[in-house]
Amino acid sequence: MANFLKKRMPMEFYLGVVILVMVIFFSLTTDQFLTIRNLLDLSEGYAVSGIFALGLFVVLVTGGIDISFAAVASVVQYAIASLLLGGYIDGAFQGIVLAVMFGICCGLFNAVLIYYLNLVSIIITISVQSLLFGGLMWLTNGRSIYDLPEWWTTQHEIFPFTLGTESYQIGLPFLLMLILTAFTWVVLNKTNLGRQLYAVGGSQESARRVGIRVGIIHLFAYGYLGAFAAIGGLVQVYRMGEVVPNALVGGELDVLAATVLGGASLTGGKGTVLGTLMGVFLIGILKNGLNLIGVSSYFMNIVIGIVIVIAITITHYKKRKETNVGFA
C-alpha cells in the first residue's frame, strides 16, 4: 500500500508539503509573514516571474531552453515606451499588440537558429540575451523612462475588500497571471497541440515518425515564451510606473529554478502548469520569509541554491529509478 501511494503521489503534493512547512516556519519566526498585506504583496510581486515561468515551461516541455526572455522583456518595454512618447503609436491596444508581436518575433528568431540551424539552445539564447541587453544599454546609456501614459501606470482596483479597518485589493498583475495560467493549462492539457508539445519533448524522432511537424512545434513554443516575455515586461512597468532597462535582467535563474522545482525536466516531456506556478511561489515564499527574519541577501542565495540542488537531485534520482524499473 505504501509503495502504491508513493507511486501515485504527484510532484505537486511534495511541493505543497514543502510550501506548507515553509509557511508554518516563517509564521512562527516572524509575525509579519502571515498577514494579508504581506501575502498580497508576495502574490503581486512574483506575478511577473510567474508569467515568465509559464512561457519558459512550454519551451522546457519541448526539450529546449531559453534564458533570453528577460532581455526580450526589457527591450520590449523600452521600445514600446519610446514609440508611445514619440507619438508613433497611440493607445493601450496598439501598444500591447505591438509588444506581443515583437516578443513573438524574438522567440521565433531563437527557434529558427536552434532548430533549423541545429544549434545548442542554451548557447544561442545566452548570445541573444547578451546581444539584446547589451544593445539596449548601449543605445539608452541605461536611462530610465518615467513620463508614461496613464493607461500603463494607473493602478486599477481589482476585487477590493475590507477586513476590520484595513482595505485590500487583488492586484491586476496577479489576476493576469492566473488568467495566463488557465490559458496555458488548457493549451497543454486539452488540445492536440499540447499533446504534440509533450511528445516532441519526450522524443523528437518518435514524434517525427508519427507525423508531428517538430519544427512548427518549436516555433510555437519559443514564440509562446516570447509573447509571455513581452506581457511580463508590460506588467512590470505597470507595477513600477517606470521603464528601467536593467530591472529584469539577472532574475532568469530564479525563473528557471522555479520551473525545475515545479517538476519540469531539462530534457523535456515532463512537468505541469500547476507545478510551475507552485515552484514560483515556493521561491517567492522562501525569499520573502528569509528577508522578513533578517537573513542576508547573500546567504539567501546560498539557501536557494541548496534547495535547487536538492530538488534537481531528487528529480534525477526518481527519473533514473523509473528508467531502471522500466528495463527490469
Rank of each mutant, 00 (worst) to 15 (best):
L188Y: 08
L188G: 08
T191N: 11
G194A: 12
G194T: 08
R195G: 14
R195Y: 14
Q196V: 00
L197M: 15
L197V: 14
Y198M: 08
A199C: 03
S203A: 10
Q204G: 08
G211T: 06
I212M: 04
R213I: 07
R213T: 12
I217S: 11
H218Q: 13
L219F: 15
F220P: 09
G223C: 09
L225N: 06
L225W: 05
L225Y: 04
G226M: 01
G226N: 02
G232D: 12
G232P: 15
L234I: 13
V235P: 00
Q236E: 14
R239H: 00
M240D: 10
G241K: 12
P245V: 04
P245H: 03
P245T: 05
A247W: 04
L248P: 09
G250C: 05
G251Y: 10
L253D: 05
L253K: 05
D254G: 12
D254C: 01
V255Q: 07
L256A: 12
A257Q: 03
A258V: 08
A258K: 07
A258T: 08
V260K: 02
L261C: 15
A264W: 04
S265P: 14
G269F: 07
G269K: 06
K270I: 00
L274C: 03
L274W: 04
T276L: 02
G279K: 08
F281V: 07
I283P: 06
L290W: 02
N291M: 14
L292C: 03
L292R: 03
L292A: 00
I293R: 10
F299Y: 15
N301A: 10
I304S: 11
V307G: 04
V309G: 02
I312R: 07
T313H: 11
I314A: 13
T315N: 13
H316Y: 13
H316S: 14
K318W: 09
K319E: 15
K319W: 05
R320Q: 13
T323C: 00
T323H: 11
V325W: 03
V325T: 03
F327L: 13
